[in-house]
Design a protein around this nucleic acid. Structure first.
Lengths: 119, 119
DNA sequence: CACCATACTATGATAGCCGATATATAGACC
DNA sequence: GGTCTATATATCGGCTATCATAGTATGGTG
């Protein structure tokens, strides 16, 4: 009963930071700090996430079932850094895709209204 | 000195709701309630704004200089509804465009990574 | 006039974010 | 060895944005 079968639509719209966190995990497993840097890169520096926001957001996303913590990948076994690794749940992936679709449609609208290149 | 010359970039990223509010005003003057309905429409019902959020957001946006209140358009002179009308400031328009560009680039990335149609 | 949509205001609670501080390991340099 | 920077996470106090609800008031319809 702990997993109350949440629908992906209920999470939409995501905040920019939440979407970027999910996006950073699209290809598999990452740890917190790496996510932080990924977001900075893929946003072209437009979206910054400080440690306070990051780790709080991660634990929130784990709680609601969009992320789950996984054990350290083999490649990092010897590493004594206190890293914690995360991946998307299937719900998390659905939510990421739904939000991506929302943004794609929004951008389509924005282009149609000529708000990008406005002459 | 009240206007401290804020740079548009400092407002980026906008929250989804804030962006939609600016977007609703792209063509000119609107009143609060109309904005609320615009947002619902142009987002395809994905983004809802309740009255609490809406009017608080509007007054915040006026305070920071993205919107300004304008007097009732002539067409509504006889109307005794207690409507209040708003339009984008030039800063507000710049911020709206900047955010639109951010989203456009993000969507470009999302397409490139094949996160929309994923076969 | 009863009813519903329109239109805005106010309030108390929660979610999300920020900035700063703290702790600890890894790696580079001298 | 000692110092410095980057990596890596946790936590805390405070602020911003949102939500849910209730309240007030007008306009239009039956």
């Amino acid at each position: 009963m702990s997993t109350a079968k949440k629908k992906p639509e209920e999470f939409i719209p995501l905040t920019p930071r939440t979407f970027h966190i999910l996006l950073a995990l699209k290809d598999g497993v990452e740890h917190g700090y790496a996510i932080m840097k990924e977001v900075d890169e893929t946003s072209g520096g437009r979206v910054k996430i400080g440690p306070g926001t990051l780790y709080e957001a991660i634990s929130r996303l784990v709680e609601v079932g969009l992320l789950k913590e996984v054990s350290s990948p083999a490649a990092f076994n010897k590493d004594k850094r206190r890293r914690r690794f995360y991946k998307l749940t299937s719900l998390g992936r659905k939510v990421m895709r739904l939000e991506a679709q929302r943004l794609a449609e929004l951008v389509r609208y924005v282009r149609q209204e000529e708000l990008l290149a406005e002459g």
